[in-house]
C-alpha cells in the first residue's frame, strides 16, 4: 500500500476525508452557535442577578461567575455530560418517565457551552448595562413604561450595541470551546480530525487542516462582528 498524498487524504475521493471534515465543520459551527445563544440567555439572567438589589440573587450571580471562572472548562463539560443526564433522569422519573432520558450529544454539548460562556457573557452584559444612561431609564419609568417594556425597548437594544465587541470575543472563545465538546463523542471538527488521524495514522495532516479551518471561521466571524459593530454604532456621535 502506497502512502496517500495530502490532497488525496483530505480530498473528496474514495479514500478522502474531505466530506467528513466539512460536515464536522458544519457541526462545530452549529454547536457553537446554539451554545452561544444558550449562553446569551444564561448570561442575561446572571447579569441581571449580579445587578440586582437582592442580596441572595447577587450572591448567586457572583458565585456562578466565580465558580465557572475557577474551574477548567474541560471539567465543566465532563461534569455536565455525566452529571447532567443523571439529573435529567431524576427529574424525568418525577414526571413518570421510565427513567430513560436520552439527551442527544448535540444538546448536551450546546448546553455545556452555554453554561460556560454564560459566565463570560454575563460580565459583558453587566459592563454594557453600566454604560447605559440612567436618565433614559428614569425617563422611561416616568412615562409609565413597565419593567418588561423598559427591558425590551430601552435596555436590550442599547446593551446589545455596547456589548458587541465583548460578544465578539466571547464568540471566539465559544468557537474554541466547542473543540472540547469532542470529548463527549459529538463528531465535530476536532473529533473528526482525531478519528481521521487515528485511522490513517497521519496526525499532522489532519490537525493542521483542522487548525486552518478554525482560523477561517475565526477570521470570517471577526469580520462579521466588525460589520455589526459599525452598523450598530451608526447614528452615535463620537468625539473624534
Amino acid at each position: 500500500m502506497q502512502q496517500l498524498s495530502y490532497f488525496e487524504l483530505i480530498g473528496f475521493g474514495p479514500k478522502g476525508w474531505g466530506l467528513a471534515l466539512l460536515t464536522a465543520t458544519g457541526m462545530t459551527l452549529a454547536v457553537a452557535l446554539c451554545g452561544f445563544l444558550a449562553g446569551s440567555v444564561v448570561g442575561t439572567f446572571v447579569a441581571w442577578a449580579k445587578l440586582s438589589r437582592n442580596l441572595a440573587a447577587r450572591t448567586l450571580g457572583d458565585g456562578y461567575t466565580t465558580v465557572l471562572r475557577g474551574i477548567p472548562d474541560l471539567l465543566v463539560i465532563y461534569l455536565f455530560y455525566f452529571g447532567g443526564s443523571a439529573a435529567l433522569g431524576a427529574i424525568g422519573s418525577l414526571f413518570g418517565a421510565d427513567g430513560f432520558i436520552g439527551v442527544p450529544a448535540f444538546v448536551t454539548g450546546a448546553l455545556a457551552i452555554g453554561i460556560v460562556s454564560g459566565a463570560y457573557q454575563a460580565e459583558v452584559f453587566r459592563g454594557a448595562y453600566q454604560i447605559l444612561n440612567r436618565g433614559e431609564l428614569e425617563a422611561a419609568r416616568s412615562v409609565g413604561m413597565h419593567r418588561w417594556l423598559i427591558f425590551r425597548r430601552i435596555i436590550a437594544p442599547q446593551v446589545l450595541r455596547y456589548a458587541i465587541p465583548g460578544l465578539g470575543n466571547t464568540w471566539q472563545l465559544v468557537l474554541k470551546e466547542s473543540a472540547l465538546i469532542s470529548v463527549t463523542g459529538l463528531v465535530e471538527l476536532l473529533r473528526q480530525s482525531h478519528i481521521a488521524a487515528g485511522s490513517t495514522r497521519r496526525p499532522f495532516d489532519f490537525y493542521i487542516t483542522a487548525a486552518v479551518l478554525y482560523l477561517v471561521i475565526t477570521w470570517f466571524s471577526t469580520y462579521l462582528f466588525q460589520r455589526a459593530e459599525t452598523h450598530s454604532m451608526r447614528g452615535i456621535r463620537r468625539a473624534s
Partner: peptide, 18 residues
Amino acid sequence: MVAQDWDGIIPALNAKKY
C-alpha cells in the same frame, strides 16, 4: 451504534447515555 470515548464509556452507560 454510537461512538464514545473509552475513558467514560462505563460511567456514561450508567448515566443512561446508551
